[in-house]
């Protein structure tokens, strides 16, 4: 009896009602990646506000 084939990267399996994927080294739960990246702002705009629109002084 031969050994089960080695999983490939991206393989999917059910573990009960949970889905797992093989990431190349181990089986890990298939979860949604957090979309919370906040890279620096290169342009320096603040929603297009005109910096001269709100002057610190009146008159």
């Amino acid at each position: 009896m031969g050994s089960p084939p080695q999983p490939e990267e991206g393989d999917i399996r059910f573990n009960g009602n949970d889905v797992e994927l093989f990431n190349g080294t181990a089986w890990v739960p298939h979860e949604e990646l957090p979309d919370d990246q906040t890279p620096p702002d290169m342009r320096g705009d603040d929603d297009g506000d005109d910096p001269d629109a709100h002057l610190p002084f009146t008159g």
């Binding site: 990267e9 991206g10 999917i12 994927l21 190349g24 990646l33 990246q37 906040t38 890279p39 620096p40």
Partner: peptide, 24 residues
């Protein structure tokens, strides 16, 4: 993490992650 996301840390890792997610 703000550039490569939660799972990669290099451009090659990002490429590999993209291939993985598309395959899945």
């Amino acid at each position: 993490a703000d550039f490569y996301g939660p799972t990669a840390s290099t451009p090659a890792g990002l490429r590999r992650e993209r291939r993985l997610r598309l395959t899945v």
